[in-house]
Amino acid sequence: MNGAQRIPILKVGRVLVVPVQVDMDDQTVIGLQERILSELERTGARGVLIDISLLEMVDSFIGRMLSDIAAMARVMDARTVVVGIQPAVAITLVELGLELRGVDTVLNVDEGIKLLRDEFGADDDERDEEEAELQGEWHSFGEPRHQA
């Protein structure tokens, strides 16, 4: 399966935005990790924002991928935030014993962008552009999804 190619990596200002919208098999997870790192190198982005608000489950494999991306991105001088963890997923992660070591988690995309922007400092040239694009296209990913 060529699943990794279906997860987009969008460069918004100096941030790579990764909306994960499908349940990923292990190869897709590994492929995504590699693509994020090569995009970091290619674009010189300073932040990685991974939106998992549509993920209904994070097991130890996906959890480790998130920790690994954060650690590798840090080595490449970029910071990683994971946004939109569903409450049921958060409860299960803690019970499972996963800490998501080194990963900053925030509630939604807006908070994630704010956090990354604080990290880069206020004089980001692309700030206005980021704002416009995020409000327009990606705002909806920050909304928590509910399921009966």
Partner: peptide, 30 residues
Amino acid sequence: EHDIVVARGEVRAMAVALGFGLIDQTRLAT
């Protein structure tokens, strides 16, 4: 490896059918 995805999907679907709430569905799928 892909059967891992199938298994957690089917287990969740069955948990839904058995009347489990969202958190328990997530626990069982995990």
